[in-house]
Nucleic acid binder design. Structure first.
Length: 337
DNA sequence: AAAACAGCCAACCGCACAACT
DNA sequence: TAGTTGTGCGGTTGGCTGTTT
């Protein structure tokens, strides 16, 4: 049942709060608390609706509000939590003491979102962007000369597509290397990620859903997440790291093994040191039975590769596509070696 | 100097849902 | 059981401010 929120709303003042109104609200809450928001404005001598008072208090006047710029640490926390929770701003805010959901939401929309887009990451899916506009921009960034001077729009398009694919591959490699580089770090960076008061990333995150129901994360926790120009330093045993990641993937990071409400996850997540701690890397669209084998069976469709399949494209899937492609295999080997 | 534009963010809107009557 | 109320939440808006033309 949904009541009409507009009823009587015209009787109340709207718009920006004055310092006098703020003072009245703070004074009243200090003395009496805020058990009943509907009755509060009248008792406090305010011509505002209770909802307006509640918002003003929770988003601005509360004494524990932390104002000012978001730190890089907070930024990382937001990005990582968003990759798991999506637009659950209040849930994200629970892990950032002093920050409100509204503040985080605004920060996301005005700062982080843009950064991710500029990095070629879809802020909604946390996966590489494959839309043509993005690659057109990147292509322009790299210089039009690289694409030749063909006047044929089809040729131009194909060339753009080819370069876009290569750019996507470069980005995949970068993120893979970052995973390797930060795999241990992320084991978790949750200590620093969420601060000492939040030792467990997933504590309290679950409400019956599993991670498979949430958005997957494309990238790991990374120190240079927002520095697209940073060069990742690969550890010496990259291939071993990849093998470990695959092993983790095959060995129990499937959706059914990641019920957030399951205590075993919380404990194992916080203590494991030899597995990829980033469960969100598992494709949400990949069922437990959909193994690498099945994915290999579908690799024959070149359109999937050249155009990408953004809805289901993960680091691992992308890696497999890369290493299975004859043309690119030597290319990547060269880079990795 | 002024108009146009863009970015930012506080506040509002409306839906959802639990608790209550 | 149906209706009402209170609150939480995510999306959107409008106005302020700084920058560009």
């Amino acid at each position: 049942m949904v009541r009409s929120p507009r009823s009587h709303s015209s009787d109340f003042k709207k718009g920006p709060w004055t310092p006098e109104e703020d003072e009245k609200l703070v004074d009243y809450i200090k003395r009496n608390g805020h058990e009943n928001w509907k009755a509060l404005p009248k008792l406090a001598g305010l011509n505002r609706c209770g909802k307006s008072c509640r918002l003003r208090w929770t988003n601005y006047l509360r004494p524990d509000i932390k104002r000012g710029k978001f730190s890089e640490e907070e930024e990382r926390v937001i990005v990582n939590l968003h990759s798991v929770l999506g637009n659950k701003w209040s849930r994200i805010a629970n892990h950032l003491p002093g920050r409100t959901d509204n503040e985080i939401k605004n920060f996301w929309n005005t700062h982080i979102r843009k950064k991710l887009l500029q990095m070629g990451i879809d802020p909604n899916t946390h996966k590489p962007r494959t839309d043509l506009d993005h690659f057109l921009n990147l292509s322009q960034f790299l210089g039009a000369a690289q694409f030749g001077n063909t006047a044929d729009p089809v040729d131009t398009f194909l060339q753009l597509q080819a370069d876009a694919t290569q750019l996507a591959n470069i980005q995949l490699l970068r993120n893979l290397l970052q995973i390797m580089n930060t795999n241990t770090l992320a084991n978790l960076e949750s200590n620093s990620l969420l601060g000492s008061q939040n030792p467990n990333l997933f504590e309290g995150l679950g409400d019956g859903a599993t991670i498979s129901n949430t958005k997957e994360s494309f990238y790991p926790v990374s120190q240079d997440l927002f520095n697209p120009l940073a060069t990742p330093q690969a550890p010496p045993n990259d291939f071993q790291a990849i093998s470990n990641l695959w092993a983790s993937y095959e060995g129990g990071f499937g959706p059914e093994g990641l019920n957030i409400n399951n205590n075993s996850l919380s404990s194992s997540y916080g203590t494991q040191t030899d597995q990829n701690p980033l469960p969100a890397l598992v494709s949400a669209s990949t069922s437990p039975g959909t193994s690498i084998v099945n994915q290999k069976e579908s690799k024959g469709d070149p359109s999937n590769y050249s155009t990408g399949t953004p809805a289901t494209y993960t680091v691992f899937e992308g890696w497999e596509k890369l290493i299975d492609d004859d043309y690119y295999s030597s290319y990547w080997k060269d880079i990795l070696e």
